[in-house]
Write a protein that binds this DNA or RNA. Structure first.
Lengths: 114, 114
DNA sequence: AAAAATACATAGACTGTCGATACATAGACA
DNA sequence: TGTCTATGTATCGACAGTCTATGTATTTTT
């Protein structure tokens, strides 16, 4: 198994949490921030990120603002109020799941709650 | 997002760890044990489990033994030595990933190492 | 001038899990 | 006797999410 198989189901939550932390980010910035924070352990590809962002937009979780930098455009994403709610919900669920998995792997131990 | 999306990439590791703990298990037993241990939070379906077990078998991670109970057959699975190695490897990787995700979600915190 | 980084995007393939379904035995209960 | 539930293995088709590969264009670095 490779890390790429593990990211499934967590990418959305990761993106939402980054947006929550930073206020607003653009796509390329997200890939770099994830790379930086994880010391290159998690690399988010464009082919994963942009479809995910577009879906978040379509679902009303984020809103966008296009900004021209020189002649190149950046599309900033930030959470809607619905997105804020979802962030909390999904994060809670993710942490609960991680805890449950830990239970299965280490019968007598629990991961610390964040 | 639902829990079912999160299980992706972790099912294999969960199965391997259960086999490591129990020595040998049969399919139905695995579904019930996961259900029991997680208070019903994680339900492994037949459509997920058996393909996974068959793949583990094909990959040489587990070996099987068929046992007749009454007139009904049970297929017990247990780890091969290769499977033991993989269990450790995958578990290490999974825990590392969980830790990395936690880093992304809680910038200043780390999950306890099990 | 060439290369690398920045910045967006999509198409197609892959793969893992799920829902539904199937078959059969066993035990409980009406 | 008939039916319901639990036990037990198994497969098929659908679906969704991620990846690889590719594309376009600008900006910065060498």
């Amino acid at each position: 198994m490779q890390t790429k198989d593990l990211i499934k189901g967590t990418l959305n939550t990761i993106i939402l949490n980054l947006l929550k932390e930073h206020g607003q980010m653009y796509g390329y910035e997200i890939t770099q921030e994830v790379k930086r924070k994880t010391d290159g352990k998690i690399l988010i590809r464009e082919g994963s990120l942009y479809p995910a962002l577009h879906k978040l937009l379509a679902d009303g979780m984020v809103m966008t603002e296009e900004v021209l930098v020189g002649r190149r455009s950046r599309i900033y994403y930030k959470l809607t109020s619905k997105g804020h709610e979802q962030t909390i919900e999904q994060t809670t669920e993710l942490l609960g799941f991680l805890d449950t998995v830990a239970l299965l792997i280490y019968p007598d131990k629990k991961l610390a709650n964040g």
